[in-house]
Design a protein around this nucleic acid. Structure first.
Lengths: 188, 188
DNA sequence: CGCCAGGTTGAAGCGCTTCAACGTCTGTGG
DNA sequence: CCACAGACGTTGAAGCGCTTCAACCTGGCG
């Protein structure tokens, strides 16, 4: 549980009261390689915090083409946040890339805290803001940059990406085929 | 002021107290055609609610290519929300497409309300959630769909788009050149 | 009338996709 | 210890869609 408390504390320091409120709501879960923690078509009724391993969130479009929306690893939250917020079915699936461990909390439990607690509303607002910033960064890189620029920015800003994820997953994240990424890498 | 109150009330009903808190912070502003209400490089220290007219938010990349991030019209908020949240310089400019009117509120004033008010924290969280949903929808349409699909989805879901905005602005919003959009439209 | 903004159309070129073949590394079973 | 399969990545060739540069059309306005 410690890593998720540290994470919350970094965003907005918790008092004793908040620790007591959230602790009974948290569940630790082991996930095997290739296991799905969310399936397209189901509503995402939880948030999960990665304590070990890594995950890919991907969408399959009407032509059967699969695209990685997000790649996430330790100390990051994974969920289909729009399905979580709206209660609508998820249009993405989330799958473990390797053997992993997550801490989960259910929406129905968090919603109870949001009714009255200023702390959890502030934290919720800050987390939504953060989700927004991540989503907007991703949108801007797709809108403003070429695949080549996206790749080189990615490995410049977070070189560990290449170690954490396969080129197949990275190419899908960048929005090109594996072959194109291979050629982008070849002509350095 | 009425339209922004209606907007807030739709998201989360206000009590007398909240109306009194927010009213002195709101300023109405007229904007002429082509006027910038935010310039790239400046920090966005306000939120603006459109009561009349329309705006485009656009980015100019390192090659000088300009791309419309958002197109907005009446009863919508405009701001560079990430610059607003982070305090960092904006990477986009916001320009009036036609003669317009907005209601603005400054971040420093809103931040004061956020310190103590449960209402404004709830509303802030819901607005962040909404900004996130908009940004994610946009990201997904760019990531998962072809320009052709984006265009036809756009005019199917909001036919008024074609009346509100020029094809030049729409093409830049969709992420193709004006010429390509023209050809997409031609081969129906 | 002439100008200009907004949109269309044509032709050449480039980048990404697709399909396909081929390397390379790793784990597994004979 | 070798043979083989399977996952992952590279490379080749053909094709398609978008871009670029350019010419042209049209309606609105001074």
């Amino acid at each position: 549980m410690n890593s998720i408390f540290e994470h919350f504390n970094k965003i907005l320091p918790m008092a004793e009261k908040e620790v007591e409120e959230i602790t009974p709501l948290l569940k630790t879960k082991l996930v095997v390689k290739d296991e799905f923690i969310l399936n397209e078509g189901k509503t995402c009724n939880f948030l999960a915090f990665v304590t070990k391993g890594s995950f890919r969130s991907f969408h399959v479009n009407s032509n059967g083409k699969s695209t990685n929306l997000m790649l996430n690893s330790t100390d990051e939250f994974i969920s289909n946040y729009d399905s979580y917020l709206s209660g609508l079915p998820s249009n993405i699936s989330i799958q473990a890339i390797e053997i992993s461990e997550v801490i989960t909390v259910l929406k129905k439990d968090l919603d109870k805290l949001l009714e009255t607690s200023l702390y959890w509303n502030k934290l919720g607002r800050m987390m939504s803001e953060n989700m927004f910033l991540i989503s907007k960064l991703r949108l801007e890189s797709i809108l403003y940059q070429t695949p080549k620029e996206r790749y080189f920015d990615l490995i410049k800003c977070s070189p560990e990406f290449l170690k954490k994820y396969s080129l197949t997953d990275i190419s899908s994240f960048i929005g090109v085929t594996l072959q194109s990424l291979s050629r982008i890498r070849a002509r350095i």
